[in-house]
């Protein structure tokens, strides 16, 4: 899973049926220390995340398909948790 920050919301009236009723967010991967990293991507929100929340995003196909079960379709990234706190004891940077 990746640590990301919610940086926006996306509205798409015309969408694939797999996205019916799904909340779609724009997220960007954060390093644990908080600095900006890779370009933003789009994820389905399953935990009622809000603006600026630090979240856990599942981006691996098999895990996503297990989570969605029979609904499995063209979805690759899902917000699966809201991070309250990260405690880093050792850093290699």
């Amino acid at each position: 899973m990746r640590i990301c920050r919610v940086i926006g919301t996306v509205v798409a009236t015309a969408h694939h049926p797999a996205y019916d009723g799904q909340k779609i967010m724009l997220v960007r991967q954060d390093s644990p220390a908080g600095e900006k990293a890779a370009p933003a991507f789009v994820a389905v929100d399953r935990v009622q995340a809000g603006p600026d929340d630090r979240v856990l995003v599942l981006t691996e196909g098999t895990g996503v398909r297990q989570l969605l079960g029979a609904e499995a379709g063209p979805i690759r990234s899902i917000i699966v948790g809201i991070i309250d706190d990260i405690d880093i004891e050792r850093s290699h940077t």
């Binding site: 996306v10 798409a12 779609i24």
Partner: peptide, 14 residues
């Protein structure tokens, strides 16, 4: 690669 949604509106919150 597949196009799965047409974005009407994207609201940045940062």
């Amino acid at each position: 690669a597949a196009i799965v949604g047409i974005i009407d509106d994207m609201h940045r919150t940062d």
